[in-house]
Amino acid sequence: MSGSRRVDEKRRNLLKAGVFAAGISFIGVSRSTLMSMLKPVSLSEVLGVPPRRETEETLARKAEWKEERIKEWCSRKVEEICREYGEGSEECAEARRRCEAVKVKATPARQGVAFAMALDVNKCIGCRRCAYACVMENNVARNNGIEWIKVLEAPREGEAIDFLHAKLDYTDAPKEDMVYVPVACMHCENPPCVMACPVRATWREPDGIVVVDYERCIGCRYCMTACPYGARHFNWGVPEPSVLELNPNMHILGNVPRQVHVVEKCTWCIHRTRDGGIPACVEVCPVGARVFGDLNDPESPIRRVLEEYGAFVLKPEAGTRPRFFYFFGPARTPAAKEGGGEK
């Protein structure tokens, strides 16, 4: 009897103390701060411990949370820029406009969609426009030197792409005896990186896009070791995205600005393709070497090229079953080298 009374007393004291503390903190904290603290975001989400499978709802909430964070960061940057260039300057207005336009979406995968991309090796001229468009579109931090698309220049002879004699740092293209093979994430059906990740920070979405949760990645780089295509990139330094070049169209699993020490990779411009657009690399390709579409849609471009020209994948022996195909399209007419003083 006396024991239980003691417990009761203890509990009462605890309650009293709790109410008292709450009162003090309520007086100390302004109402708006308190309201923002009461946003329906659980600690686990902030810590990056979401449920095993993101539901649409948790993802949307996370996108909302992330948008707030980005806007906070962004407005700080805007102030800096406005101080540096002057309040009335073009840069200040531009930065402010971009910040306000920031939209972090969480568009879920559409039912029955299976994205795929194909690249015409006969057409590619190795100009690297896709690689740089990708950097701009995906808010890749310029200071970390990350480029998701790498363009390999490989000898044309031989039936397979000879990686060992391929070059990345060519300065003149296209050459007659070379093929150009842009490589980025293959969005494998059987992705070794997803298998390797110890914390499920990366997974394959129902529409075939392999994504990374930047809030969850622990930076162990096992996925980079497991990837046969060198498609994964690490933020070795603190990323410093430029507000003046910020792409306001963002997806929580795609091109939101990254943090230090997390892995990132191509997402087939998830912020565009999930909403009916096409990836930036496809749009920007000056020779139309890239084709993107839904494998399940008989009218899609990807079906057309796969049915018409057939396709191959890189490193089939790795057993990854890439969804990125290469094909030899209609015989290419080599670009005329003279007379093209074009930039």
Binding site: L47, G48, A196, C197, V199, R200, I218, G219, C220, H261
Partner: peptide, 23 residues
């Protein structure tokens, strides 16, 4: 070596990808 050790300390003991990931 780990980029984000604090996250790892929270996440690793939960073994979210246990039978599959060798780590």
């Amino acid at each position: 070596d780990m980029g984000r050790p604090l996250r790892a300390m929270v996440l690793m003991p939960l073994l979210p990808n246990f039978p599959r990931s060798m780590l």
